[in-house]
Amino acid sequence: MMMSLYRQSESRARRRLFFATLFVVVLFFADLISGGHLRALVRTATIPVWTAGSRAASAVFGSGFFTSRASLLRENALLQQQLSDAEQRAAGYQALKDENDSLRSIALLAGVEKGITAPVVSSVLSSPYGSFLIGAGSADELARGSIVLAASPDAGGFVIGRVGDVSAHTALVNELFAPGTALEATLKGAAVMLQGRGDNARADIPRELSVSVGDIVTVPSLGGRPVGVVDNVVSDPASSHQEVYIGLPVSISSLRFIYVVSR
């Protein structure tokens, strides 16, 4: 009797799994046929979750609760309150300052090229495909393939990707250095092939080409715009090539705003 019940439940669970598999396949192909409408809905739904989560995280960590709890316990109640208030104000001020610095760097770009400033509305670390979401879409006249720039206070604008899927108020940006991508670039006047690695890119160049850390890499197909700087050069005397690692002068995970060049 027990055995029969177990077998029944086994077969029910397996049937459920089979229908779930079928359902996922149908959803996937429905999305492909509809030109990505389903995934646009899912992306729109993730933005409030991401916004709420990042706000909660900055409220918790910005308050200094974890960093100064031990010292606060030693203070009296009044000082604790004052310290907490001061830290909250400082965190708020720092957040505004960061935002202001970011927008100021982008304002410099806006003076040079026509485009729009858009906020980054997702994590840039979570994507396995080297992509992230921005809070601007077709309603803001954003077009697929537009060049996305990040502003560096010291080095100006660097191309970090291109706009991929565009929905009404969001767009997916495909990073130039996404894992598995290849990009033709120019380094010190020589053509090089960059292999995307996620955080940075790698290129093999002839040993004769003299390259040093800080050299700028540009891409002719992106109007000769810079895409990164040489971070590291690994040279093996036994090899006719040297490995060059190219990174961005700004940390992509700290980006809050980007600049999309109008097409």
Binding site: V24, L27, F28, D31, L32, G35, G36, L38, R39, V42, R43, T46, S122, S126, S127, P128, Y129, S131, L133, G164, D165, L172, N174
Partner: peptide, 11 residues
Amino acid sequence: GLCIDFVWLPA
């Protein structure tokens, strides 16, 4: 799995 691909994978 589908959710991850829908959010991050270009269509």
